[in-house]
Deep mutational scan, measured.
Amino acid sequence: MATKAVCVLKGDGPVQGIINFEQKESNGPVKVWGSIKGLTEGLHGFHVHEFGDNTAGCTSAGPHFNPLSRKHGGPKDEERHVGDLGNVTADKDGVADVSIEDSVISLSGDHCIIGRTLVVHEKADDLGKGGNEESTKTGNAGSRLACGVIGIAQ
C-alpha cells in the first residue's frame, strides 16, 4: 500500500500549488496538507474528481469521485461524495494553506484517490446545502481553477 501521495495543481491562470497526502494505516485517516497560491481571497471548493484525465484541462477530470452514488455534502457529513473535501481558505495575498484530515478518502482500496484528479474551484462549496439540484452534485463551487493528478510519492 502506498502511504504517501502528492498532487501538483496547475491551471490556465495564476492558480498553482502542491498538496501532499499521507496515510499511516490502511483504514486510518489521510492527512492532506500543502499550499495553493494565486486564488482570490475567501473560500474555494476542494474536491477529488473521478478521473485522472487532464487532456482537456480540468474539465476532463469528470464529476466528483463518488463510488457510493451519494449526494454532495461537506467533509463531516454522512451523506457526501468520497471526493468531497470541503473548502480551502485563501488569505488576502491569495494563498491557501491547506491542513485537512479526512477519514473517507484513502490511498488504497475502494476509496483510493491515487490516479484521480484534485481540483480547486472558483467559488465556495455550499456543502450540499444550497437548496438546488446543482448543490447536491457540485456544491455550486463554480469553474475549475486548477487541477492535477494525484500520484504515489516516496
Rank of each mutant, 00 (worst) to 15 (best):
T138S: 07
D91W: 10
G142K: 13
A5G: 13
S108E: 12
G45I: 02
D84P: 00
E133Q: 12
L107C: 04
F46Q: 15
D102A: 09
I36D: 01
E41K: 15
N132M: 12
V104K: 14
G52D: 00
H81G: 01
D91S: 09
G142S: 10
Q23H: 04
K123T: 08
K37I: 08
S60T: 08
P14A: 05
L39R: 00
D102L: 07
Q16N: 07
G38I: 07
V119M: 04
K37M: 10
T138L: 02
D110H: 10
K37D: 06
R70Y: 14
S69L: 09
K137C: 08
K123R: 14
I36E: 02
R80C: 07
G128E: 01
G73V: 00
A124G: 14
E25K: 05
V6E: 07
N140Y: 08
E79Q: 15
E25P: 15
T138A: 05
A124D: 12
I150V: 07
L68I: 15
S26V: 15
V30S: 07
V88D: 00
K76I: 07
K24G: 09
L9N: 02
K123Y: 08
V120P: 00
P75T: 10
G34P: 02
T3H: 08
G17D: 04
E79T: 07
S99C: 07
V82K: 11
I100F: 14
Q16C: 08
G11L: 11
A96H: 04
N27I: 15
D12V: 11
F46K: 03
I100C: 15
L43T: 08
A5E: 03
D102R: 05
K37G: 12
C112G: 13
G42I: 04
T40Y: 11
D91N: 08
D93C: 14
I113T: 10
K137M: 07
D84G: 02
G94I: 10
E41Q: 09
S106N: 10
K71Q: 11
G11W: 11
G42C: 05
C7K: 02
D125C: 05
D93P: 10
A61K: 01
V95E: 09
T3W: 13
K31T: 13
G148A: 12
A56F: 09
F46L: 12
V8C: 14
A141P: 03
V8S: 06
G139Q: 03
V30G: 05
H64L: 02
K76P: 11
G109I: 10
N66F: 04
G130E: 07
K31R: 07
P63V: 05
I114K: 08
